[in-house]
Measured scan of single mutants.
Amino acid sequence: KAVLCADHGEKLQLFCQEDGKVICWLCERSQEHRGHHTFLVE
């Protein structure tokens, strides 16, 4: 069962290295995470 983003309802499948947390693809494109290094997690 996928864990969903509290903000967007999308699957949490990216790890943001700068923030040390898992985010969704919409979070990654938001101003908050712009320019951060993210990695796909399974």
Score class of each variant (00 low, 15 high):
29 R>S: 05
4 L>Y: 12
23 I>L: 04
37 H>A: 13
6 A>P: 10
2 A>D: 11
21 K>S: 09
29 R>K: 10
25 W>D: 13
8 H>W: 00
8 H>M: 01
5 C>H: 01
41 V>P: 12
2 A>Q: 15
5 C>A: 00
4 L>E: 08
39 F>M: 12
41 V>R: 14
35 G>D: 12
34 R>Y: 14
22 V>G: 11
24 C>A: 00
16 C>K: 05
14 L>N: 08
7 D>V: 14
5 C>T: 00
39 F>V: 14
15 F>S: 06
41 V>L: 11
16 C>D: 06
36 H>P: 01
35 G>K: 06
14 L>R: 14
14 L>W: 15
10 E>L: 06
3 V>M: 14
13 Q>R: 08
19 D>S: 04
2 A>E: 15
21 K>N: 11
20 G>Q: 10
18 E>Y: 02
3 V>K: 12
26 L>D: 10
19 D>H: 05
11 K>E: 14
30 S>C: 09
9 G>P: 03
6 A>H: 03
20 G>W: 04
2 A>L: 11
35 G>E: 09
30 S>T: 08
27 C>T: 00
37 H>V: 06
40 L>G: 13
8 H>I: 01
33 H>S: 05
11 K>D: 14
7 D>N: 09
27 C>E: 00
7 D>M: 13
21 K>A: 09
1 K>L: 03
33 H>R: 04
28 E>W: 04
39 F>E: 14
29 R>L: 07
37 H>S: 08
22 V>L: 14
18 E>S: 05
41 V>T: 13
3 V>S: 12
20 G>K: 05
36 H>G: 03
2 A>M: 15
40 L>S: 14
4 L>F: 14
42 E>T: 15
15 F>W: 09
11 K>A: 12
39 F>N: 12
33 H>W: 01
15 F>V: 10
33 H>A: 03
27 C>A: 01
26 L>Q: 15
19 D>R: 02
20 G>A: 11
24 C>Y: 01
31 Q>W: 02
9 G>H: 05
17 Q>V: 04
5 C>L: 00
4 L>T: 10
8 H>G: 01
6 A>D: 09
18 E>T: 11
19 D>A: 01
3 V>Q: 05
8 H>N: 00
30 S>W: 01
8 H>S: 00
30 S>Q: 12
1 K>T: 06
6 A>F: 08
18 E>W: 02
28 E>P: 04
40 L>I: 11
33 H>P: 01
39 F>A: 15
25 W>V: 11
23 I>E: 02
12 L>Q: 11
2 A>I: 11
11 K>Q: 05
34 R>N: 10
14 L>G: 09
34 R>E: 10
6 A>C: 08
36 H>L: 02
21 K>W: 03
14 L>P: 08
30 S>N: 08
24 C>K: 02
37 H>K: 15
8 H>Q: 05
3 V>W: 04
31 Q>K: 09
